[in-house]
Amino acid sequence: MNIFRLTGDLAHLIAIIILLHKIWKSRSCAGISGKSQVLFALVYTTRYLDLVTSYVSIYNTFMKFVFLATSYATIYLIYVKFKATYDHNHDTFRIEFLILPSLALALLINHYFNFLEVLWTFSIYLESVAILPQLFMVSKTGEAESITSHYLFALGSYRALYILNWIYRYATEGHYDLIAIVAGVVQTVLYCDFFYLYITKVLKGKKLQLPA
């Protein structure tokens, strides 16, 4: 554990809390892509199957439970409790175009060919693109509420901080995982355009609005 990994995990946790709090407080999931949330639940489910096979630390186990539980709670809020407020007309990204290539790539490029390892690899590939339905939704409506922008910023920062963590780990332990690194870089790059808008607009008190 190092400071980059810890702040990365905290950014991830904060992102989830912002999202749940926003939906709960406003009693609405307007502007939130249910499809991205379904993909995240799939990511955590396939990655954390190792909860039963390998123990790392109480911290890891606790965080895995939190990520799993909150991802399903989010889906429940969007698709059941506040279903009426779900903006499905704008949430039209075809998630099979992300799931199937991620699965195919995981079958082809992995560290080891067994069930758990392929699913872990799939979760890494899928996570890198899971935000696309949400970004697509923002681009389709041309704007995002500030709170949704804060959520996206926290969620994007998490993998960016993990990249610093990987550099640090390589320098100090010689440890590296190419699959996680390449996917993590792709994931972070996808947020770059958003980061730019966030810093130049949202932080200056303006609404995140895309140029027409």
């Binding site: 990655r47 390998s54 080891y112 390892e117 993990y162």
Partner: peptide, 10 residues
């Protein structure tokens, strides 16, 4: 490197 290795990150 030895595989399968345990994944120690989240």
């Amino acid at each position: 490197k030895r595989f399968p290795m345990p994944h120690d990150e989240l």
